Amino acid sequence: MKQGTIVFLNGTSSSGKTSISNELLNHNEFAFHHVSIDDFFKRLFGDYIDFINTTCASAESADRKAEQVPNDILIDPLVELFFSTVKFMSAKGMNVVVDTVNDSDERLNACLRLLSDHPVLFVGVTCSKEELMRREKLRGDREIGLAISQYDNVYRLHEYDLELNTETLRSDECANLIVDFLRSNREYTAFQKLSHRSVGVS
């Protein structure tokens, strides 16, 4: 069975990934399935995360290193499951649009390890820090400054098959450029190049 194409949108929160994903779903030429990390956590693990937050609400961390323990124990394995789900869907021949934030070495390297043997179109979704702040204020459902806190880690990568600036391009224009790339049958090389080197934050 032919593996489905994975369109991986790399960008911070509020950079425009979900809007582009929604536009791709409207294209008839390619049947896409949108897999969002936000939906993955809320729909599949919302009750579980609520249970953990409620049960452990009174527990206080002894130091800052201890505060990272819940993330290492709970969140990182769920992120791996997210990428494993994307891999499974591609293996079943489904075209997948991935909407997540890779803001740590652990997440990015898990992604590279799991998906490097699948066809991944790696797309950089960018805009200025000023625009990210403006969008956060308009949205009202994101902590102001979240995107800026992710910015340096998310955009430390400079290897893309396609780069899209959502400050100068509308979501439908971005989606059309992605479809044009897929239609051209050009080779996807960025993800493979990243997977053959150690990724870390300097």
Rank of each mutant, 00 (worst) to 15 (best):
K87S: 15
K87N: 15
K87M: 11
K87G: 14
F88Y: 12
F88C: 06
M89Y: 15
M89G: 10
S90E: 08
A91W: 03
A91I: 01
A91V: 03
A91L: 06
A91D: 12
G93S: 12
G93F: 09
G93C: 11
M94T: 14
M94I: 13
M94A: 09
N95G: 03
N95T: 03
V96N: 07
V97F: 05
V97D: 01
V97A: 06
V97W: 04
V97T: 08
V98E: 13
V98L: 11
D99M: 07
D99K: 07
D99G: 05
T100V: 10
T100A: 15
T100I: 06
T100H: 15
V101L: 01
V101G: 01
N102L: 12
N102C: 09
D103G: 09
D103K: 07
S104P: 07
D105A: 11
D105V: 08
D105G: 11
E106V: 14
E106K: 14
E106M: 10
R107H: 11
R107G: 08
L108R: 15
L108T: 09
L108A: 04
N109P: 08
N109I: 08
N109S: 13
A110N: 13
A110E: 09
A110C: 06
C111S: 11
C111T: 12
C111H: 09
C111G: 10
C111L: 11
L112A: 04
L112G: 05
L112I: 04
L112T: 04
L112M: 06
L112D: 03
R113G: 12
R113F: 12
R113H: 15
R113T: 14
L114Q: 14
L114I: 15
L115N: 05
L115T: 07
L115I: 04
L115F: 04
S116F: 08
S116N: 12
S116R: 13
S116V: 00
D117R: 06
D117H: 10
D117V: 07
H118C: 05
P119G: 00
P119L: 03
P119A: 03
V120C: 01
V120A: 04
V120F: 03
L121Y: 02
L121C: 06
L121S: 02
F122H: 14
V123E: 02
V123P: 02
V123W: 02
V123M: 03
V123I: 01
V123A: 04
G124E: 10
G124F: 02
G124S: 11
V125T: 01
T126L: 10
T126S: 14
C127E: 05
C127K: 03
C127A: 08
C127G: 05
S128N: 01
K129A: 04
K129E: 10
K129H: 04
E130H: 07
E131Q: 06
E131D: 04
E131W: 01
E131G: 00
L132D: 09
L132Q: 07
L132N: 06
L132C: 05
